[in-house]
Structures are given as C-alpha cells and as structure tokens.
Nucleic acid binder design. Structure first.
Lengths: 135, 135
DNA sequence: CGGCATCCTTATGGATACTG
DNA sequence: CAGTATCCATAAGGATGCCG
C-alpha cells in the first residue's frame, strides 16, 4: 500500500507537501516586489511616495497591493498621520525585521553572484546554439 | 538637477534600480518552484520522476521549465545516462549548493513562522470586517 | 498624498496528446 | 522515462481616471 510514498523517499520535510501551510510563505516571497519592499524598509520607515520612488519601476497598484499583503501577514505596519495632505508611513514589524535579515542575505547573494549566473547562461546558450539538432 | 534622486535617499543599494542585473536573480527566486526544487536536490541528486513525485503538486511542464532555468543559470546540472529507458539525473552545482544554504534558512523560517503569519492574517481580516466603513 | 476601481494586455500555468 | 508541443483558462500586472 502506497499511502504516502513521498515521505519515505526523503523523510518528511513538509514544505514539499501540497497543502503544507509553509508553502504559503514561499508563495509570499514569490512576489517579485516583496523582497525589495522589505529591503527598502530595512533602513527605517518610509512613506508611500518615498517607497514608490525608491523602488524604481514599481507601479502604484503593485506597491499598494504588496504593502497590503505584507501588512496583513504582520510583516509591515502602517501608520497614518491625519494631516493635510494625509501622511502614511510604513515600517517593518519585529517579525518583518526578522525575515529581512534572511532576505538581505539573499539580495547580497544576488549581487555577488550575478556575474557567475550571467556567464553560465551565456555558456548554456552557446552550447545550445552549437548543437541545434543537426537533422 | 535631479539626475539620480533615488540614490541620495538611501545610498546606492543597487538592487533597487530598474535595470540592475541582480534583480534577475530575485526574479529567479520569484518562481514558486525554484526554492522547492533546489531544496529537494539539497539532499543529493534525483531523477526527474523522483523529483516530480517529491514535489507534490508540480506539473511535468513546470518541473521541466524550472529545471531548465536552473540548469541554464548554472545552479543545477543534468546528467544523462543513455540506458533504456533513459535516465536523467539532476544535482546541485557548487553555486547551487551555495545558494541552497540561504534558501534552506528561508524554508526553515517559513515553517517556523507560518503560525504567526496565519494569526496575523486572521487578526487583520477580523479588524477589516469590523470596520467596514459604516457610512 | 495615498489610495481604489476599471479596463485591458500579457504572462503564467494546467491539461492533454504525442515522441525518442 | 523524460521529455516536447499545443491549447486554453486564469491570474498578474500596467494604464488611466477618480476620490477623501
């Protein structure tokens, strides 16, 4: 009886199961902007407009959407100052800061190894171009 | 003259610029499956079918696509044994293993903090439900 | 300023069928 | 077994306009 063959293969690390909740968190990080927004806030709270300018290329919609998602997940908190015009400031929660330390190292890794990756891609493409199935 | 106002705001961490190549790497990680595939390979090489079974829920298409992308980036290597039927084995390159140490801690974080996130989301939703703009 | 609502285009990903 | 190719549904994301 093969009820749970997967678990026997590697020994039950649960992110690998379809309905494991922790996959949600990976899904969260699978947002192109999440890592950058958290990084941008790691140096201190910022207002909406400042974030928008800092995260070159993000649209208003995606910034709003990303911030809501992060706020809902308890990673970012939102402080409203009822001035005129209204000011809204975003900052990391303790949980957000905790995650940021990991994401920061991922961003650093990206910057440090982008050259190696670019080179690997070029090499791969060249190999692929040279052996284009000569039928 | 405001040629590069963004850099003065935070001091030149370049992932934040639109055309910075390191954003590509973040884009790579923005693939729902990348983190899981690399994690699945962290315990040793695996064959295509084994990966597919281990990563519960992945389709054949997405697995192929993800593996190609990772192979092209130099994070995974692919070894073909011309047996019948053919065997194809995937494993981490040194670069891939290096990245995996970071991603592993992200997966661990996900598993450790999923409860806090779930609770935060529930609280947020409840707050939102209780203050539905009583106009 | 900091949004939300709408429209519309494109990218993503699943299902299915076929191949070496 | 390990793919490739095709079709199709849905979701992601950009552009625009309006509002408190």
């Amino acid at each position: 009886m093969y009820t749970t063959p997967d678990l026997r293969e590697l020994g039950g690390a649960n992110v690998y199961l379809r309905n494991c909740a922790s996959r949600d968190v990976l899904g969260l990080l699978s947002n192109k902007w999440v890592c950058l927004v958290l990084g941008s806030l790691s140096s201190g709270p910022r207002r909406f407009g400042a974030l928008r300018r800092h995260l070159d290329g993000i649209t208003q919609k995606m910034l709003t959407q990303t911030l809501r998602e992060l706020e809902r997940a308890g990673l970012v908190d939102r402080r409203v100052f009822p001035t005129t015009p209204p000011q809204v400031e975003y900052g990391l929660t303790p949980l957000g800061e905790n995650l940021e330390t990991l994401l920061g190292s991922v961003r650093t890794w990206s910057e440090e190894h982008i050259d190696a990756i670019t080179a690997a891609r070029a090499a791969y493409d060249e190999r692929a171009a040279q052996a284009p199935k000569p039928l």
